[in-house]
C-alpha cells in the first residue's frame, strides 16, 4: 500500500508550501501520497495548478479551522 507523508507548511507563505512539497516529492517513491498542510490560501490554489502542470496527480483539498490539507500522488 502506498505511503502517505505529511508536509507541514503551516505558517509559511507562497511559494513556501509548494517548495516544501517539491523537496518532499524527491524523497518518496512513485505512487506514494503527500499531504501538504498550509495556512496560506494562495498555496492551496497554487499547489493543485502546479501538480497538474508537471504531471503528478492531485487528489483532494479540504479546509479545517484555517488549515488547508492538499493531497497529491507522485506519478513520475
Amino acid at each position: 500500500m502506498a505511503e502517505r507523508k505529511i508536509v507541514d507548511g503551516r505558517g509559511s507563505f507562497c511559494p513556501g508550501p509548494l517548495m516544501e512539497l517539491i523537496a518532499a516529492l524527491k524523497t518518496v517513491e512513485v505512487g506514494d501520497e503527500l499531504e501538504v498542510l498550509s495556512t496560506d490560501k494562495g498555496s492551496a490554489n497554487d499547489i493543485p495548478e502546479w501538480v497538474n502542470k508537471v504531471g503528478h496527480e492531485y487528489l483532494s483539498t479540504r479546509e479545517e479551522n484555517g488549515v488547508w490539507y492538499i493531497v497529491v500522488r507522485r506519478k513520475k
Binding site: C14, P15, L18, M19, I22, W50, K53, V54
Partner: peptide, 9 residues
C-alpha cells in the same frame, strides 16, 4: 518567487 516557481515548473 518568479525564479523558484518557474524553475520547478
Amino acid at each position: 518567487m518568479v525564479a523558484s516557481v518557474a524553475a520547478v515548473s
